[in-house]
Design a protein around this nucleic acid. Structure first.
Lengths: 194, 194
DNA sequence: GAGGGGTGTTAATGCTCACTAACATCTGCG
DNA sequence: CGCAGATGTTAGTGAGCATTAACACCCCTC
């Protein structure tokens, strides 16, 4: 095949894995499927990865790492809490729209990881959530942290729903809609009595 | 076993299937797992259902049917659009909190259905979404239907995130939080220029 | 031009799993 | 009683699949 740049095949495999895992689920994708998707046979994968589970692990650790890193960066760069929340929302929305497969795998396949990988991913996710919670705590000083954490998780559910409901909207329309909805949901005033 | 009421075992199997499919995914649950969960061996299931896929089909059609039916009923009973939206939100939230397994399976396992079952479930889901869209159209007369549909799907993502992020909140706290966030997200005014 | 690392192929191997067969048990009914 | 239907059980059976073995090729370097 004579592909020069080291790791081209590797990254192709990771991309195919993310796409196929998102579409059919980890257990619904075979090694042969993965090989076929990158133009080889199944067992060729073992030249690049120790096994199927390691593949999933790499995908999940990578996306968690990117999200957490980006989150930290955006918050650090922002002038105030309001601006930081906006940046987090825009960043997450862009990610969800650009990489729907990664977002899907990220919140469905945690259970198929090695215990060690699961720990790593969980730690990264927790860090990312805490970025959001920290920003929200400034905007809603009265709210208890447990409420803010739950609110952030719910907002992720909203933002991550994109891959399952693309619909007829253009990308900018969808981005704007999610931004408005996410901001409204997260900055809703403290619960009035029902 | 001498269980009197016809269908006790049947409903027990369906309950176990929903729970196990939610936890491990359709493909991560074996017939033996299902049998064990209801106190029999695996093959005993075939006395009650033609196969594993039929089991999933029954679970998904049933939950879709209940949601759609409940939605129609709530909207019909409500006095106005505002009240109808509130009823839909409360109904959906109660369902998500009472039956997290059903909600989880409902939006993850569509791909493992028979083509016929998938059609039925899709039709029911569409009907449910249209209830929401109809109500929203009254509250936001200017908005195009495609936007409202996308907004409803996004709101479902928010409400259905419950099972994955129960956290430390009590049930009433979580219900109130989701109600506030959902209402805020759905009634946000038309997008201002960013 | 010989050797070696990197990458690929086809053919096992051994396990899991959905589903079926053959046989048991119980319960109610004539 | 005696039988029938409903419901279980244990042993196949055959397919799919992750992983490994054994072997081939290419390219780079000495």
């Amino acid at each position: 095949m004579a592909v020069r740049p080291a790791g081209r095949r590797r990254t192709a495999i990771l991309g195919a894995a993310a796409r196929l895992f998102a579409e059919h689920g980890y257990r619904g994708v075979s090694i042969d499927d993965l090989g076929r998707a990158v133009g080889t046979t199944g067992p060729a994968l073992y030249r690049h990865f120790p096994g199927k589970q390691a593949l999933l692990g790499e995908v999940l650790v990578d996306v968690s790492d990117r999200l957490a890193g980006r989150g930290r960066e955006l918050v650090a760069r922002a002038a105030g809490a309001e601006e930081a929340l906006d940046a987090l929302l825009r960043g997450h929305i862009a990610f969800a729209l650009d990489e729907p497969a990664l977002i899907t795998v990220h919140d469905r396949e945690l259970g198929n990881l090695t215990a060690a990988d699961r720990r790593r991913v969980r730690r990264l996710q927790r860090g990312y959530v805490e970025q959001w919670v920290g920003v929200l705590a400034e905007l809603r000083p009265g709210a208890p942290p447990a409420v803010l954490r739950a609110a952030v998780h719910a907002a992720f559910g909203l933002l991550n729903s994109t891959p399952h409901s693309r619909g007829e909207l253009s990308r900018p329309q969808m981005a704007q809609l999610l931004l408005d909805m996410g901001r409204a949901a997260l900055t809703v005033p403290a619960a009035p009595p029902s």
